[in-house]
Amino acid sequence: MEEQTIFDIIHSMDKVTNKLIIQWNKLFEEDLGVSHILILGHLKAKGRSRPSDIAKALGLTPPSLTHLSEKLVQRELIIRIIDESDRRIIYLDITDKGTEILKRADQEGQILRKNLFEKLTDEERLRLLEIYKKLSDL
């Protein structure tokens, strides 16, 4: 068996990721990307949060989070909340409309996951997830 180089591995991972993103964009017709959904998911799970904390948790730069959150605010999927004790501090929180979009995204994501990973056994999917988590913790 031919030895895989790091570049072969990265290329294969990129191909799968790009395929997922393309299929996601075709399936979910809300003009929202994966990063938008991740922000909504974070807010749903953690509650109102400071943008810097969200950026850190999701591995985004603060400017990227600002750009992404602006679209979510404009679409009324999240709101900005000013801290009453320190008006310099701003929090983001998910709205009911954002929760509904997140619910739909989860449903569509399940369809995408089924279509993409149906070639793998349950054990292979679990192992793949474990591998990605391990690599992301480096």
Rank of each mutant, 00 (worst) to 15 (best):
I6S: 14
I6F: 10
F7A: 07
F7E: 11
D8W: 09
I10C: 08
M13Y: 13
M13L: 14
D14F: 12
V16W: 14
N18V: 07
N18W: 15
I21S: 12
I21Y: 09
E30K: 15
E30N: 12
I37S: 01
G41E: 08
K44T: 07
R48K: 15
R48D: 04
S49H: 05
P51W: 10
A57K: 11
L58S: 09
L60C: 05
L68P: 02
L68W: 04
S69I: 02
S69Y: 03
S69E: 02
L72C: 02
L72E: 00
V73R: 04
E76V: 06
L77T: 02
L77N: 02
L77R: 01
I78L: 02
I78W: 00
I79L: 05
I81T: 03
I82R: 13
D83N: 15
D86W: 11
D86T: 06
R88C: 07
I89C: 10
I90P: 00
I90Q: 12
I90M: 15
Y91N: 01
L92Q: 04
D93G: 00
T95M: 04
D106P: 02
Q107A: 11
E108P: 02
I111D: 08
L112V: 07
K114R: 15
F117V: 11
F117P: 03
F117I: 11
D122P: 05
E123Q: 14
L129D: 08
I131G: 06
I131R: 06
L135I: 14
S136A: 12
